[in-house]
Simulated assay, not measured.
Amino acid sequence: MSIKQTIVQQALPLIKPGMVVGFGGGSTVAELVKEAANLVNEIQVVTPSPTTRQLATVLGYTVIDPQYCDRVDIAFDGCDQLNTHGSALKSGGGIHANEKIIATLADEYWLLTVSSRLVQTTFDTKTPLVLEVLPKALALVMRTISEHGGQPTIRTATNRDGMTLTDNGNFLIDCHFPSYEHLAALNNDFATLAGVVETSYFDRLVTNALLGDETTGKVEQLF
């Protein structure tokens, strides 16, 4: 059994009949969606991920739109990095604005990831802070990132000419900084900047995490 499958087996008992369950993006969550199919008629699903939504629909789950959902019992997601205070950096999928809505709606927000992505306090700068930005605010945000000592890069599409657009029709800016020592304060500056829809830093939103050790095959909870 792979470490991904072991993590999923640990997560399955957390899902109970009658729940509204949030499933994020990524391969581990996709595996959980498949493994939870015995509850397909007993839970409702909400997801920020078009890929996960398609999978859940094909499997027969009742999928509800987040705009009509005012509470989620439990949600599962992945991350790029996680610290011991329950904060996380997410950047790869570019759906963090919609992910954060579901994380905030959820009574419990669990991350499923490998233990090598856990940092004690300060995040590794190899993972960018990603901003979802209204198109009209592009120049303002790019200038502000530079003024904060960051190097901004507009994310471009891989399968067509032009910029990557989010499901909300906005741009993604990957921000690289020399240090994340004061990430919470930095994040707050961008989160309150006109035109920034959301950031990829999840400040103490994580209830718990299942961390799989790829060497030993063991899975441990963060808290």
Rank of each mutant, 00 (worst) to 15 (best):
W110K: 10
T199S: 08
R160I: 05
A184L: 03
V133E: 00
T156E: 14
D189H: 13
K136R: 03
R160Q: 13
L172M: 15
Y180F: 15
V197H: 02
L138E: 07
V114G: 06
T113L: 13
T158N: 09
M163F: 12
T113Y: 05
L140N: 10
R155W: 02
A184D: 06
L140Q: 04
P178I: 15
I173A: 11
H176K: 12
W110Y: 15
L186D: 08
D203L: 07
T192P: 00
L172K: 00
L165V: 14
V130A: 07
R160H: 09
T125A: 08
T192M: 04
D167K: 01
L172N: 11
T156V: 14
T121I: 09
L183T: 09
S200Q: 03
F190W: 07
N159F: 11
V196P: 13
S115A: 07
N188K: 07
I154L: 15
I173V: 14
N159M: 10
L134I: 14
H182K: 13
V141A: 05
I101Y: 11
F190I: 12
Y109V: 09
D174T: 14
F202S: 04
T199I: 13
T122I: 12
N187D: 14
V196S: 05
T144P: 00
V197R: 02
M163P: 06
K126D: 12
I102K: 00
T199E: 03
S146T: 13
I173W: 07
Y180C: 10
N168Q: 15
Q120M: 07
S179H: 06
I101G: 06
A103K: 02
R160G: 01
T164Y: 11
T104D: 09
I145F: 02
R117N: 14
A194Q: 00
E147M: 14
T156M: 15
F123A: 11
T104N: 10
H182I: 12
L129W: 00
L193D: 01
T144F: 14
M142D: 13
L138F: 06
T192F: 01
L165P: 02
A194S: 12
V130R: 10
S116L: 04
L165T: 09
P178V: 13
P152W: 12
T199Y: 01
S116I: 13
K100L: 06
N159H: 14
R143W: 06
N168R: 03
I101T: 10
A103D: 05
L131C: 08
N168G: 05
Q151G: 04
T122L: 04
T166C: 07
T125P: 01
V130Y: 03
T113M: 12
A194P: 05
A194T: 13
H176R: 13
E198N: 12
